[in-house]
């Protein structure tokens, strides 16, 4: 097998599938961290259900990216044998969610984004992407609702839960802007009817998030720093390497290991 080129040198369509797949896989890994550790048994099952939905999306998208690449890499090769700079997920999904409010804020922001994204990707001329989106949109609608319900209860709950939920919103907010960044690769694919223009998702996203936060008596931070972003170019934040190490070490220590 030839040595894989950098992700950033792949054909645009393969890179685009990888972007969406990396978002889903990294987010699934983060959510899976709650397994056996969530505040309540019921929430434990709920969060890992969301993780499994995302893992399913990731498998389909990574497999498709491998097919488009045409170099013989399957979903496992792409998931377990790429290093940090070859991952093209947005930075929001890799943010640690150590406090439950952080996890829920991250979920609200990202699921609301995926909901708008898949809602438009169903019309892509790329039949595989459209099919993945058609299946995923129902899952994501539930993820978005799950997060919204929690934001409302924690925000409009006790003084302590309100303060922590507001803090969670403020911790994740700097990574929101990157969700709606467009670049040349995306614009090119939008022109061909394959990709969704990220910038256009901002308005419906904002409407939904504003409504949830208003009901939750929370507010969006007005003046807060914006992370420089760069996830789509393989630039990641401090904790991402640790996430990859945990996710990949079994496969790298025991290549081809099976259950």
């Amino acid at each position: 097998m030839t040595v894989p080129v950098s992700t950033l040198e792949l054909a645009p369509s393969a890179q685009y599938a990888l972007r969406l797949g990396d978002d889903a896989l990294v987010f699934a890994q983060r959510l899976g961290e709650w397994s056996a550790k969530a505040p309540e048994l019921e929430e434990d099952v709920a969060l890992t259900n969301l993780a499994l939905d995302l893992l399913g999306q990731a498998r389909a998208l990574l497999t498709y990216a491998g097919t488009l690449e045409g170099a013989g890499r399957d979903e496992d090769a792409l998931a377990f044998l790429r290093d940090e700079r070859d991952w093209v997920n947005v930075q929001l999904v890799e943010q640690p969610g150590g406090d439950f409010a952080d996890t829920i804020a991250r979920q609200l922001f990202f699921s609301a984004y995926q909901f708008e994204l898949y809602g438009r990707l169903v019309d892509s001329v790329d039949e595989t992407l459209a099919a993945v989106a058609a299946k995923a949109i129902k899952e994501v609608a539930y993820h978005r609702d799950h997060a919204a319900q929690w934001v409302i209860r924690l925000g409009d709950g006790t003084a302590d839960s309100h303060a922590r939920m507001q803090a969670g919103i403020e911790r994740m907010w700097p990574y929101v802007a990157e969700l709606f960044d467009s670049d040349e690769l995306e614009r090119d694919l939008v022109g061909q009817g394959i990709a969704v223009p990220s910038a256009e998702l901002r308005e419906p996203w904002q409407r939904f998030v504003d409504d949830v936060l208003a009901e939750a008596t929370l507010s969006l931070p007005e003046r807060l720093w914006t992370a420089p972003g760069g996830g789509r170019r393989g630039i990641h934040t401090e904790s991402f390497g640790y996430l990859l190490a945990e996710m990949q070490h079994l496969h790298r220590s025991h290549p081809g290991a099976r259950w």
């Binding site: 309540e40 048994l41 019921e42 709920a46 259900n49 609702d145 799950h146």
Partner: peptide
């Protein structure tokens, strides 16, 4: 049975725990 804060959350928890 399950524990939940209110009826709407109980419905969602039930969906996740009992209709997987």
């Amino acid at each position: 049975s399950l524990h939940a804060a209110d009826p709407e959350m109980a419905l969602r928890m039930a969906r996740d725990v009992y209709t997987r």
